[in-house]
Amino acid sequence: MTAPNAPETPQGPHPQSAGPVEPPTQWTLPAEPAKPPREIKREILTGAALVLGSALVGLLFGLLWHTFAPKVPLYSDGSAVYLRDPEGEQQIAADGTFAIIGACFGIVAGVIAYLITKKRHGGISVPIGLTLGGLAASWIAWQLGIHLDSKSIIALAQSTKVGQNFPRPLALGAKSTLVVWPMAALLTLVAATSLFTPRDGHPEAEAAGSAPARSQPEE
């Protein structure tokens, strides 16, 4: 029997009055999933392919530079060798030719790297491969271009008539042009990624990166 007008108590444990809930002092972030070994191997192969491919194209780079770069004219009086045009800009033009050819090849390399890696969003191996490959190609082109002129200045002067012009062996005056290829390749890759890769939240990105959720059966 219960006393009349007594308040009914709910069944089960009585709820305890709690004070204000303090926010947590730290949050644990979810750990990023590690890449599978197959993905790491594919990135390594991609970077190696970019380096080796660029290095091979460096041979063509050197041939083009040696063919189209202007040569500095020299002449000999029989005892010494002199510049025919001391104020000429042939050396600057030769450096500019090297930079222009390197920039063109760098742009092409950046476009190719973007096209072959855009479906899987590339990876750190792509810019590393473009950088190392561009430097290797530029170095190979430089060495090939200057070694295609087998004769030295003294040998050329001795085989040329006195007072007659002969070209000085090709040389690269501005060594900074060696980085034109990798810079052009990286800038092209960044521009192509920014312009043509769908960002997060874009319908194309969501369609490509996420699968449709399955509907749960109603109970």
Rank of each mutant, 00 (worst) to 15 (best):
A137V: 07
S138C: 03
S138M: 01
W139N: 07
I140T: 06
I140F: 02
A141H: 00
W142A: 01
Q143F: 13
Q143W: 13
Q143E: 15
Q143M: 13
L144M: 09
L144F: 06
I146P: 05
H147R: 10
H147T: 11
H147K: 09
L148M: 08
L148Q: 07
D149W: 06
S150G: 13
K151R: 15
K151V: 15
K151Q: 15
S152A: 11
S152T: 15
I153F: 11
I153T: 12
I154N: 08
A155M: 11
A155Q: 12
L156C: 06
A157V: 06
A157Y: 06
A157C: 05
Q158E: 05
Q158W: 05
S159K: 09
T160V: 05
K161Q: 14
K161C: 08
G163C: 00
Q164I: 02
N165Q: 09
F166A: 10
F166C: 11
P167G: 04
R168L: 10
R168D: 06
P169V: 03
P169E: 05
P169N: 04
P169W: 08
L170W: 10
A171S: 05
A171M: 08
G173H: 11
G173S: 10
A174V: 02
T177M: 00
T177R: 00
T177K: 00
L178W: 00
V179E: 04
V179K: 00
V179W: 01
V180W: 00
V180Y: 00
W181A: 04
W181D: 06
P182W: 01
P182L: 03
P182S: 05
P182Q: 04
M183L: 04
M183R: 00
A184I: 02
A185H: 00
A185K: 01
A185N: 01
A185Q: 02
L186K: 11
L186V: 12
L187S: 03
T188V: 08
L189C: 02
L189D: 02
L189F: 08
V190P: 09
V190K: 14
V190S: 09
V190E: 13
V190N: 09
A191D: 06
A192K: 14
A192H: 12
A192V: 12
A192R: 13
T193K: 14
L195Y: 13
L195M: 12
L195I: 12
L195A: 04
F196N: 04
F196I: 06
T197E: 04
P198M: 07
R199D: 13
R199W: 13
D200Q: 12
D200T: 12
D200K: 13
G201S: 04
G201D: 03
H202R: 10
P203Q: 10
E204Q: 09
E204Y: 01
E204L: 05
A205W: 11
A205E: 12
A205Y: 10
A205L: 08
A205K: 12
A205F: 11
E206G: 10
E206A: 12
A207T: 15
A207P: 14
A207E: 15
A207S: 15
A207F: 14
A207C: 14
A208N: 14
A208T: 13
A208K: 14
A208L: 15
S210T: 07
A211K: 10
A211M: 12
